[in-house]
Amino acid sequence: MHYTNTKSILSSKNRMNIYRGCSHGCIYCDSRSNVYNMNHDFEDIEVKENALLLLKKELIKRHKTMIGTGAMTDPYIPLEKNLKYIRKSLELIYKYGFGFSCITKSDLILRDLDLLKKINEKSKVVVQMTLTTADDELCKILEPNVCTTSKRIEVLKRFQEEDIQTVVWLCPILPYINDTYENIDSILDSCIDAGVSGIVCFEIGLTLREGNRGYFYKKLDQHFPGLKEKYVREFGDSYSLPSPNNDELMSHFLNKTKKHGILNNTWEIFEFMSDFPQKTVQSRLI
């Protein structure tokens, strides 16, 4: 871990990344890619030391909207347990009447359930959870340093109990590893049971670029001997690596989500998550 100062914390689309880098160890992580110009080791997490001060200044100036985080780095990495930058951000978001949306794989988010409930009463919260495999043992290989899929589903159900809306990212699905009907169907059943509002699934497959491709292939050699050579033969240096089962599994995904009233159009889901409600409920400021 190391500290840095930054000039701003919110993007033009009201998204923030207080941390850069991650220790979850997901073997497929796109954020390792060279395109993001991270000039430090990925596991040497950069902490934006002045983030909270900047966030307060920017929230005072901006119109009420949804504040999002987690697109580049999971906000609930283990460092957050002690640093509490995300929790302190939520206090500011609540105080100034904004909404909140985040993407995570971690059950640490439940630590902040009290604040998330307050924000949701005052404006809106959407918790997004990534699910890739229904098999917890496989999950420990693909996403070794974060809670298992079964635990994440418990988290989704906990938010369902509190009337906080949830969205699942069903990606990436790795060709010849978890791209099976049984896996996709089991995850969908869990999403239905947890009452998720939408599921983001671009296609059944993954993407690789310079920077994350080498790490991914190293992990294939470690855990799935011989599979890297199959990937190289079939996909070369392609950015998009669709599963050979893509058409069948996407059809099943679309049909089952439609049947159960779950949003499955990516852009409709993004619109739903960014829509800021006009609520009349007034909450006591922190």
Results as ranks from 00 to 15, higher is better:
residue 110 L to I: 14
residue 120 N to T: 06
residue 126 V to M: 14
residue 119 I to G: 03
residue 113 L to W: 01
residue 112 D to S: 00
residue 108 L to T: 04
residue 125 V to F: 07
residue 130 T to G: 11
residue 108 L to N: 04
residue 121 E to V: 03
residue 124 K to Q: 08
residue 130 T to R: 05
residue 122 K to Q: 15
residue 110 L to E: 15
residue 119 I to F: 04
residue 106 S to G: 10
residue 127 V to W: 09
residue 114 D to P: 00
residue 122 K to R: 12
residue 125 V to N: 01
residue 115 L to M: 07
residue 134 A to E: 12
residue 128 Q to K: 14
residue 137 E to S: 15
residue 131 L to H: 09
residue 114 D to L: 01
residue 138 L to K: 15
residue 127 V to H: 05
residue 134 A to H: 14
residue 124 K to L: 01
residue 132 T to S: 15
residue 126 V to D: 12
residue 109 I to H: 03
residue 113 L to G: 00
residue 127 V to P: 08
residue 105 K to T: 15
residue 131 L to M: 14
residue 128 Q to T: 12
residue 124 K to G: 01
residue 116 L to C: 05
residue 134 A to G: 09
residue 118 K to T: 05
residue 105 K to E: 06
residue 125 V to C: 10
residue 120 N to P: 01
residue 105 K to I: 06
residue 118 K to E: 14
residue 131 L to W: 12
residue 107 D to K: 13
residue 127 V to M: 15
residue 125 V to L: 06
residue 114 D to C: 02
residue 119 I to E: 06
residue 112 D to H: 05
residue 116 L to I: 00
residue 133 T to E: 04
residue 133 T to Y: 14
residue 111 R to I: 08
residue 105 K to V: 04
residue 127 V to D: 04
residue 113 L to S: 15
residue 134 A to M: 06
residue 125 V to A: 04
residue 134 A to L: 09
residue 112 D to W: 01
residue 133 T to V: 14
residue 116 L to K: 04
residue 135 D to L: 07
residue 119 I to P: 07
residue 127 V to F: 02
residue 129 M to C: 14
residue 137 E to V: 14
residue 114 D to H: 13
residue 117 K to S: 09
residue 132 T to I: 15
residue 128 Q to N: 13
residue 111 R to D: 14
residue 124 K to F: 07
residue 126 V to C: 15
residue 138 L to E: 13
residue 134 A to C: 14
residue 117 K to C: 04
residue 120 N to K: 06
residue 129 M to W: 07
residue 112 D to Y: 00
residue 133 T to H: 06
residue 106 S to V: 02
residue 125 V to Y: 03
residue 115 L to I: 05
residue 134 A to V: 11
residue 123 S to D: 03
residue 107 D to F: 13
residue 124 K to S: 11
residue 132 T to K: 05
residue 119 I to C: 00
residue 120 N to E: 06
residue 126 V to Y: 07
residue 126 V to Q: 08
residue 112 D to E: 02
residue 117 K to Y: 09
residue 119 I to K: 10
residue 123 S to G: 03
residue 137 E to W: 10
residue 111 R to P: 00
residue 121 E to I: 03
residue 106 S to W: 08
